[in-house]
Simulated assay, not measured.
Amino acid sequence: MAELVYPPVIVLARSVFRALGIRFTVEGSEHIPAEGGAVLASNHVSYLDFTFCGLVARPQKRLVRFMCKESVFEQPVAGQLMRGMHHIPVDRSAGAAALSHAVRALKEGEIVGLFPEATISRSYTLKEFKSGAARMAAEADVPIVPMAIWGGQRIYTKARKPDLGRGKAVMLKAGEAFRPEPGADPMATTAELHRRVDALLHELQDRYPQEPTDDADRWWLPVERGGTAPTPERAKELDAAAVAATAQKRREKLQKKKR
């Protein structure tokens, strides 16, 4: 397919990254297939993850088609860019269409990226995984490449204002690909994917080169690492409250339209 939008966007993104002085560590690119379809599945800590995660595939000269919530495609400028880069819209109330779209792309030899947690982890620990990655990999008969990202939450994440200060470190690592066995239980494959991503995430956290500057700067670390991020239990409560608030806004919007 013609790539008129994606390459210029990559050039622009890299210019922005340089301007921000982001210190990237990118590892495991050799695990990205040089050709053919694959599912790239990562943890999710920031709004910029899909922009960062694609860097792992660049040494193999591959582009990643990310699955993103449909509302992004409805925005005038962002929507045009997302469609131009052939990313995949996801309507969470009707996920079958997105799954079929992703499987088709995989069978056509594309790399499809997704975040099995579905939403950003407020605790910065790994949440439960949805089974979509396992299901689409099995249906398309392609491997899954687990990966982890760490540090992006310090730049722009949920419930925090963007911090564009220079010099923050962002680490990315892809792990060894694995292929679901024919007829494998998707929940078992999902559990194995979770285990692999969790191991990669802990490795990056162990090697992260920067420490909090003071106690107030410990917000981006999980509680288990001496940080002040919400506990997983508290994060789940906050997520539930956010979902309820969004649903209420939708109901109010519908009521206004009916008047």
Results as ranks from 00 to 15, higher is better:
F129E: 04
Y124E: 07
A96D: 11
V223S: 09
T190V: 07
P222G: 05
E252A: 09
F115Y: 15
S29Q: 00
A188I: 01
A148Y: 15
H202P: 00
L4H: 13
V243N: 00
S29L: 01
A105K: 15
A102K: 09
G165K: 12
A2N: 15
A148C: 13
A242P: 00
K249P: 01
H101Q: 14
G113I: 10
R14P: 08
G151M: 04
R14M: 13
V56Q: 11
K130H: 13
D239F: 01
D214C: 11
S29E: 00
A242C: 01
P116G: 14
V142K: 02
M67Q: 12
V112D: 11
F178I: 08
P209A: 07
Y124G: 12
A19W: 09
L106D: 09
T231Q: 11
K127I: 01
F66D: 07
R62E: 05
R135I: 14
T246I: 03
L106R: 07
I144C: 04
R122W: 01
L254P: 00
T228N: 03
P33F: 06
E203V: 00
R65K: 13
A191N: 06
Y6L: 10
A2K: 15
A188T: 02
L55A: 07
A137N: 10
E176K: 12
F129P: 04
A19L: 12
G175H: 02
E252D: 11
T189M: 07
V103F: 08
V5I: 15
A34L: 04
E139G: 08
V77C: 07
E110Q: 14
D217K: 12
E117P: 13
V64S: 05
T190W: 04
L164R: 06
V103I: 15
R225F: 04
K249V: 01
A169V: 14
G151N: 10
A216K: 10
